[in-house]
Amino acid sequence: MIMTCKQVAKALAENRYYEMPWNRRITMFIHIRICAVCGRYHQQVIDMQKGIHDYLEHEDAGDITPTLQLSDEARQRIAEKLKKEK
């Protein structure tokens, strides 16, 4: 069974290749080992995945604090709602 570069790219981009049947997964990883283009793309997808994973951990810990907050109007509106609904 042969996979084309495009099929590999699709599987990697969709990021659900661990749900693929094992024989197809093996075919894909052999392709990645021997094809420089897909090998590099695979590594980039992995790097990005790690970035998102680490981001979510930081988000959980609450230690990313971009200078972005509720607007004063929204804050006031929500405060009034909370008071009323409580």
């Binding site: 990313i64 604090t65 972005l68 907050q69 509720l70 929204a74 804050r75 405060a79 909370l82």
Partner: peptide, 10 residues
């Protein structure tokens, strides 16, 4: 709102 408002907004 004070404790979690900005966190949830982000």
């Amino acid at each position: 709102l004070d404790e979690h408002g900005d966190y949830l907004f982000r």
